Computed example of a mutant assay.
Amino acid sequence: MKILHHPDRSEIHLSSVLYALSDPVRLYIVSEIKKAGERTCGDMSVPVAKSTLSHHARTLREAGIVNVRVHGTQRLLSLRTEDLEVRFPGLLNAILDAFESSFEKDQFLNS
């Protein structure tokens, strides 16, 4: 089985986090994980192909935003809240609060 790379806390860079969160699909994924806790990709209803969803999950993992845990054939995603809070205090909450109250989220959900 392929070992998934997760950057160490010290290797999480602001530019990578901001890039990963610049996509509305990835923002939605992170928002859903924050609300419901650990989730599989299949648990999330997003208007993209399965392979595209896998790409988004990989981008979030490589940026240090999510942790991916393999359980059988499933990959469970959880937020690395503590690591992000230590590196960039308040950043994730500020971005998710802005996304939750934005017109962009409404557009995304209605697409």
Score class of each variant (00 low, 15 high):
K50L: 06
S45N: 12
P47W: 00
S22M: 06
L53A: 08
H6N: 14
E100P: 09
I95V: 10
K35R: 12
E82Q: 13
L4G: 09
V66P: 04
S16K: 15
L53F: 06
S54D: 06
I65L: 04
L84D: 04
R39E: 02
C41V: 10
L18W: 12
L84Q: 04
R69P: 01
R69G: 05
P89D: 07
D83H: 07
V30A: 02
S51M: 10
V30K: 03
T59N: 11
L77T: 00
I65S: 03
P24H: 09
I33H: 00
L21S: 09
Q74P: 02
R26M: 07
E85H: 08
V48N: 01
H56F: 11
H56P: 08
H71Q: 13
L14F: 12
E100R: 15
E38H: 00
T52M: 03
S78D: 09
A49N: 07
D43C: 04
M44G: 02
L96D: 08
H6E: 15
I29M: 10
V86A: 07
S31F: 02
L53M: 12
A98S: 14
R39W: 01
A94N: 10
L91D: 10
L27F: 05
T59P: 02
L91K: 11
L4M: 14
A63K: 05
K34N: 03
R26V: 03
V46N: 04
P89Y: 06
A20I: 07
S22G: 08
I29E: 01
H13M: 15
E32H: 03
E38L: 01
A36C: 03
S101R: 14
A98D: 12
Y19H: 15
T40R: 14
E85C: 01
L79Q: 09
A20D: 07
S45G: 08
E38V: 01
L14Y: 12
H6I: 14
H55Y: 08
